[in-house]
């Protein structure tokens, strides 16, 4: 029982990341009909927004203290981040909470990047075949990740979570199990909740606002909405921006779980595409469901008991599931009729 619960928990944070990326991919696909291979790069850019903010906040002033000596006899260097020197305790708080604070940076930055991407590049590819869309966004992904590599180097850059969340939560106690049977890092729990909140906001936005209603109508029948005198193109541009924000947020909050490097986006992209296809192209609910499902499946497959029966299953389970689903249920779990049927 506790082992199963632990694996479910283990799958939740990764599943959350898959679900968020897949949600953005599906949004872009469902509205603009674009197959965006650069979506993983947006995830990566979000992560590096968090990294950049953290670097900025921890820029240090070095002062030499002649009264103290290091063991080598040189004067002791005292490093204090500028923010701490200027703002005192509040500065300390800023540095500590840099990852959650980066959300404030990520939202406008990613919105801009997303809109610029749609206006500047993707707009010209609506009428081109899907293969061309895949290729040009694949090229864009390479360009984006090489730019990041140029500025941040090739090594993963660790970014700490706030100190409060550093430890692990005794989740087992909540379910009436003896203490310390299921311990789980706080931050990963937070990430799962965060993913749920973001997904909730996106769905609420689409279901409860007029804007969302128009967008949903446009996803169903773009032409009719256009004939009603609504500028659906502009709304879809904003939806693309939202998709970029979702990917960026997923990336920024994921930094304490997995130190990002420049190709983290590509690693997630492949899996997220599989998630989208399993969930059903163009189905938002399917993307979220498949994201969590595959995340949890993956963590089950990496249990030693399972690996003992089928060796190597943890490495390939996601792809295997994708192959089976694609061959048995061509529309994916919750795919709509008439979307990408060819």
């Amino acid at each position: 029982m506790d082992a199963i619960l632990l694996q479910v928990l283990n799958g939740l944070d990764k599943g959350g990341a898959y679900a968020l990326i897949a949600l953005g991919l599906t949004l872009a696909f469902g509205t603009l009909g674009i197959v965006n291979f650069a979506h993983g790069a947006l995830f990566m850019l979000g992560a590096f927004c968090a990294v950049a903010l953290n670097k900025l906040l921890t820029l240090e002033k070095v002062t030499l203290d002649p009264t103290q000596k290091t063991p080598w006899g040189a004067p002791l260097e005292i490093r204090t981040p500028y923010v701490e020197a200027w703002l005192g305790d509040f500065g300390k708080f800023l540095v500590d909470w840099s990852v959650p604070i980066s959300i404030l940076v990520v939202v406008p930055v990613m919105l801009l990047i997303g809109i610029a991407m749609e206006r500047g590049l993707i707009r010209h590819f609506y009428k081109r075949p899907h293969a061309d869309q895949i290729l040009v966004t694949f090229g864009l992904a390479i360009v984006l990740q090489e730019i990041v590599k140029h500025f941040f180097g090739a090594n993963p850059i660790p970014v700490p979570a706030p100190a409060i969340f550093a430890g692990s939560a005794d989740v087992g106690a909540l379910f009436g199990l003896p203490p310390n049977t299921i311990v789980y890092p706080w931050w990963r729990l937070i990430y799962f909740l965060f993913a749920l909140v973001v997904i909730g906001i996106v769905f609420a936005f689409l279901q409860l606002t007029t804007f969302g209603m128009v967008v949903r109508a446009g996803m169903r029948d773009r032409e009719t909405v256009g004939l009603l005198g609504i500028n659906i193109e502009r709304r879809f541009t904003i939806v693309f921006g939202i998709a970029a924000i979702v990917a960026g947020l997923a990336g920024a909050m994921y930094t304490p779980v997995l130190p990002p490097n420049y190709h983290i986006g590509m690693d997630f992209l492949v899996l997220s595409f599989v998630v989208v296809v399993v969930g059903g192209m163009g189905s938002l609910g399917g993307a979220v469901l498949a994201g969590f499902l595959l995340g949890i499946l993956q963590s089950f497959a990496s249990m030693n008991e399972v690996k003992a029966i089928i060796p190597g299953i943890d490495q390939i389970i996601i792809y295997l599931v994708a192959v089976v689903i694609l061959l048995t249920r061509p529309r994916g779990l919750m795919g709509r009729k008439g979307v990408m049927e060819d």
Partner: peptide
């Protein structure tokens, strides 16, 4: 279409991981 691309991608990644 794209499903074919994803399937080939999935098989290639499986071979790589295995």
């Amino acid at each position: 279409g794209i499903y074919f691309s994803i399937l080939t991608l999935a098989f290639a990644e499986m071979s790589y991981k295995l």
